[in-house]
Design a protein around this nucleic acid. Structure first.
Lengths: 234, 234
DNA sequence: ACAAAAGTTGACCCTGCGTCATCGATGCGT
DNA sequence: ACGCATCGATGACGCAGGGTCAACTTTTGT
């Protein structure tokens, strides 16, 4: 049929996209409502005009659809973080850009972020999806690049990445609990902390500067035992 | 009967303690084996010579027994952390004592700690049990006390506590993944980071020094915008 | 020795999970 | 325009786990 536009993908494909979207949207609502732990696949299906079997044509399990949602978030924020860090010309802008971007995103995505931590007020679920893990790894690589550029002393980038992640997620949580969520001051706090700390870190034993393809399990580096005695600006 | 020793609590009470212990032990094993997400209450019961109904005489749900296990851990480590910090005469010993104690505990309790993060290699469950939350709060109070003593500048103790927690848990995770788990170097790293960072933090607007009974939702404090420009020992 | 109290047992019902035979709709060739 | 082949939606079904409870066993107190 010549009448169909070049971008007419056929009914089959269109409903497939639509169904997937419907299910994801329903899942987002249900997770936000009940929290991860309490929602059942059936709850999601019920929030949908579709049959139970259809759900399983799109996702294998509750875990998988949750992962898909998380992945979407990760994919939305990762390029922004990368760009921010690529632009950075000092370690300060590197750090502050990372945190500012992250906390602003968290604020804008409160719903998704809160859904994660609503079990019974005490349980927190964090899924390190492939996309999130890739984001962590990107951070590690960017840290290595900063080291190579001399912006950052040669420290344990794996632990430093872990510290970034831990501080970011934990402070984000507190930030959302406060009456007036303020990403700017959260970012300022986290930035000051890491920026100050980063110059105080023990240096690792020297080896190749290029860490891009390095294994994750690096050297723990116990060098410079005097490093922890430095009390800058005390 | 006079024959029973003064410490003989009666059969009933003894089997109750024993059953509770049996169930907890079974749960520990099963959680370690399957991870939190995959284990069912039935799995735990099966790992026990008891009947299903009995389980529910002791715990309401999988969540509750998990919480009980976590609480035990928290109760074991909290006094050590408190004591370590009470002894501290400088902010450095405050921080290093906290991290050393924590990472050493994590190493000794690897089983329990790993159980938490074994879903499908991607999911992590953290339950902030009452005892853990109390532990966090103790840290916050100890930070406030350090501020009051002048050991620490007047910073946002809520965010700082969050940073401690995030760094501790996240680095602990990485630490356990490494071939040679080394709590000392993990502690050294975390200590150096926070010690350096703490002096760089924005100061909060002045108010009462005694924060022990203060509400958690404090002021975010955006003071000292120049603070983040300090690059100590750069 | 006996009865009341406490606690254990496992069968039972219910709900959710994931599958699969069936069926309706779409795409395609003629 | 028609019919056939393919694709995917459907929901009933078997199965497993959750939590309960009436019946039963063991302990305790008298």
């Amino acid at each position: 049929m010549l009448a169909t536009l070049p971008t007419a993908p056929g009914k089959r494909e269109r409903t497939k996209i639509e169904n997937r979207h419907t299910i994801l949207e329903a899942a987002r609502h249900v997770f936000a409502e009940l929290g991860y732990g309490a929602t059942t696949v059936r709850d999601i299906i019920r929030a949908t005009p579709l049959a139970s079997g259809t759900f399983y044509n799109y996702f294998k399990s509750k875990e998988e659809i949750f992962q898909a949602i998380q992945d979407e978030s990760a994919l939305r924020i990762r390029p922004r973080l990368r760009e921010e860090r690529a632009r950075a010309e000092s370690i300060e802008t590197f750090i502050s850009g990372t945190f500012r971007t992250f906390f602003e995103y968290v604020e804008s995505d409160q719903h998704g972020f809160r859904a994660i931590r609503r079990h019974s007020d005490a349980m927190r679920v964090r899924m390190d999806t492939p996309e999130m893990i890739a984001g962590f790894e990107e951070l590690r690589q960017d840290l290595e690049a900063a080291i190579a550029k001399g912006m950052l002393p040669p420290v344990d980038s794996d632990y430093l990445m872990a510290a970034f992640v831990g501080v970011a997620f934990e402070i984000a949580e507190r930030m959302l609990r406060r009456d007036d969520t303020d990403p700017a001051s959260a970012a300022q706090f986290a930035t000051a902390l890491l920026l100050g700390g980063v110059h105080n870190l023990p240096h690792r034993k020297m080896n190749g500067a290029n860490g891009v393809a390095a294994e994750i399990n690096g050297e723990a580096s116990a060098a410079n035992s005097d490093a922890s005695d430095i009390s800058p600006s005390a």
